[in-house]
Design a protein around this nucleic acid. Structure first.
Lengths: 341, 341
DNA sequence: TTGATCTATGTAAATCGATACATAGAAATC
DNA sequence: GATTTCTATGTATCGATTTACATAGATCAA
């Protein structure tokens, strides 16, 4: 590795000059074109790369942005990270990926890192953990620039969320347009905003098309919690009621899979007897049996928007909108079809 | 942020002393117990954390290990990373997660980073990319300590691979023990070592139980490449032959899903008519319809072993075995059952 | 012509914070 | 008083950046 001194020597100038040229600084001191070129040539020849430790020590900048991911094994998380990295890598910053692994200890370790000025900003992927909320509040109080992805934040904390309302609206609308009139709903845990918003979106689609909302067709008790098992149990209950319906809007893809299993066990077919629409568009949903019609969760896009927002904040730009909403879209596959007569 | 000077002042000693105490150095210079305690107390009170930039500048160490991941969105990759991080985080090093995104440009960027002494070692997750091979060779030539995970490496390059042979052996054995005698195989692309090893493992299980190998029951042309489509087409061909079989060993879970789809379309049932065993144990395989019996790919364990190996290398320990083999295990779910009569 | 004043272009030296090496001073021992 | 033995410190250093100053030549008023 060559140093700035070596470059200076080779170019026949002082280290100061090299620094000025390579950083394109010019504010109070003009450097002649010929000197500039000599320096650049020398740097090229020596394959000079500044020592980041020395630079950061002096400038008190780290040129890095942390991505606080709750669990990189989670596909939501991974895709969001992808989006964030795409944007950051085009800037002068680089990313420091911090995988919290849904683990309080790890979170605290990273917290120290953040307070130690080792990063200039943070993109936080929201979780439902209470811890998460506290940490975000603390970081914000310490005036560390941050953007939260995936959760509506109180006050002035910038965030990027997803259009649950529009998403579930178009899920229900899709079924209605296929001729379904009796549509059941499997709701998620009611303590989550997402659940409530998705329910609202579905209802408003029914309203728009003049279809009465039938409480009998809603499975909302989430006694079994969240996951495929919840979808399975919910669908079993719905089927037991012997109240006819030809389609179901599931809270998410995972619960949709559970529901499909319950439907199959009952000897019914998807989509011939019952159409199923999920929400999230997990990678596996394209390969499930049958491939799942679902609402695409724009994770990557949210990552991108979050990163851009943070870069603007770091750049000192004034932000008009501190809450961004990323758009979803419907992905039609094989689990939905025309309503049976 | 407080500096070493402030700590020194508060403790009434020199910065040198503080450095010595906090780093637990003692080689040529004993520090009295009382001084030691005063320093530690002062550091605690000031919440002192060494400036890593200053430290690294001076020591010429980065205390970081890169994880070169070809694609964090890929579950293999994500789980392996998890394993690596678990081990590294217990050491004095921290990880720098480099997501290559299967992209040559990114790879080159990171390559620069590595040559710039910014990391002390690398855990490389192998891909099938030719680029990958070149990069690894170059890094090794530059004497950057590295360990490759997921691919047998030539020469002295340390690596961790998975037991394909034992895995596919136990997949076939599982079926045989369920009473299956006519077992078909869907092979992966023959240019991959994994494919060939898995084939070999399956054959040796047949041999052990005295079951003749029937070439008619093997789908090996991979004209449709890799993925669920390949599994689907392969199974269609096998079924067309009208040669009876009651079970199939798929190259991996993805091809197993394709095979299951072909079986369903034919009006047959899994596992009643045909048992299916996959390989990899993808996260989705537990939720597929039916849940898939498969061989668990020990990604996390491989990550752990790789990281430990690298740490040993960095610690200057002499390594006896430079090739580690991580063990697989059978996961029995619903896609396999007793052979139909 | 002269020396004063600008311009344009560079550079010397201090600095960031921690560590490494050689050395210093005090107490204890003989 | 000389010599060990303990214990701690002074100072240079890592490599880049920054600030205040330096120099050479041009310009210009007297």
């Amino acid at each position: 590795m060559s140093t700035i001194k070596q470059v200076a020597q080779r170019a026949g100038v002082s280290p100061s000059t090299v620094s000025i040229v390579l950083n394109n600084r010019s504010t109070p001191l003009p450097i002649s074109q010929s000197t500039r070129e000599r320096v650049l040539k020398a740097a090229r020849e020596l394959k000079y790369n500044p020592n980041i430790f020395a630079r950061s020590l002096r400038t008190k900048r780290s040129y890095s942005i942390a991505i606080l991911a709750f669990d990189i094994v989670d596909p939501y998380c991974a895709h969001t990270i992808r989006g964030v990295e795409e944007v950051i890598s085009e800037s002068e910053f680089h990313t420091l990926l911090c995988d919290v692994q849904n683990n309080e200890e790890k979170m605290k370790d990273y917290f120290k890192l953040f307070k130690g000025n080792r990063v200039e900003g943070i993109v936080v992927m929201a979780t439902t953990l209470e811890l998460n909320r506290r940490i975000i509040a603390q970081l914000h109080e310490e005036h560390i620039p941050l953007v939260v992805i995936g959760k509506e934040m109180p006050g002035p904390i910038p965030c990027v969320v997803m259009g649950n309302l529009e998403g579930s609206f178009s899920a229900a609308e899709h079924l209605i347009k296929l001729g379904h009139q009796r549509i059941s709903f499997i709701l998620g845990p009611s303590q989550y905003v997402d659940s409530r918003q998705r329910e609202k979106g579905g209802r408003s689609a029914l309203r728009k098309y003049g279809i009465p909302f039938d409480g009998e067709l809603v499975a909302e008790e989430n006694t079994v919690g969240w996951g495929p098992e919840a979808g399975y149990q919910s669908m079993k209950k719905l089927l037991k009621k012997r109240k006819k319906f030809t389609a179901v809007v599931a809270f998410d893809d995972i619960s949709a899979f559970g529901a499909i299993r319950a439907i199959s066990e009952k000897g019914l077919k998807v989509p011939d007897d019952i159409s199923v629409v999920g929400f999230d568009d997990l990678p596996m949903s394209a390969f499930s049996n049958p491939p799942l019609t679902t609402i695409h969760y724009p994770m990557r896009e949210m990552g991108r928007q979050g990163a851009s927002l943070l870069l603007k904040l770091l750049g000192g730009q004034t932000i008009k909108k501190r809450k961004l909403i990323a758009e979803t879209h419907l992905v039609v596959r094989k689990s939905s079809g025309p309503a049976a007569m």
